[in-house]
Structures are given as structure tokens and as C-alpha cells.
């Protein structure tokens, strides 16, 4: 049976744009690329290389405030 691949989903209402998930990703799938979230024009993490994401979940585990979940 093939295990379903999961990818990170960021809760932008709570994310603080701290970039910990971006640094933690072993394959550099995430970048601070999403700038349309708030009036401060902060750059939030976005999955810019989904093809290299293995669904390992390291990004979610590393998030200091637990605002990333892994979804199918």
C-alpha cells in the first residue's frame, strides 16, 4: 500500500513569519515568499518547491508556536 504524501499547511492567522520552518526543511522546499497576509508586508513561509517536499514533517515539528500541520 502506498503511503499518501503530506505537505505543510501554514495557519497564516497565527504564523509570526519567524522563518524557523524554512531553515529546518532539509530540502529547502519553503521560502519566505508570501507577502500579502498583513499590513506590515511581512514575508511568510510558502511551499515554493512542492516537488521536492517529502512530507517528512520536520517543518511542522520545528515550528516554535505549532502553526503548521501536515495535510494530504
Amino acid at each position: 500500500m502506498v503511503k499518501e504524501k503530506k505537505i505543510p499547511l501554514v495557519d497564516y492567522k497565527l504564523c509570526m513569519a519567524c522563518r524557523v520552518c524554512i531553515t529546518a526543511c532539509p530540502f529547502s522546499c519553503l521560502e519566505a515568499d508570501k507577502t500579502d497576509i498583513d499590513s506590515y508586508r511581512k514575508a511568510y513561509p510558502a511551499l515554493v518547491r512542492p516537488e521536492t517536499c517529502t512530507g517528512c514533517g520536520i517543518c511542522a515539528k520545528s515550528c516554535p508556536i505549532d502553526v503548521i500541520i501536515m495535510v494530504s
Binding site: A17, C18, R19, V20, T23, T35, R41, K42, P64, I65
Partner: peptide, 14 residues
């Protein structure tokens, strides 16, 4: 002149 805010690693202020 600021186009976007910048955060260092693990910074929640920016």
C-alpha cells in the same frame, strides 16, 4: 522605501 519587513531566524517581531 520599505518593500517588505525582514525577520531574522526565530524572530517574531520583524
Amino acid at each position: 522605501r520599505e518593500e517588505q519587513k525582514y525577520h531574522c531566524y526565530s524572530c517574531i517581531v520583524g
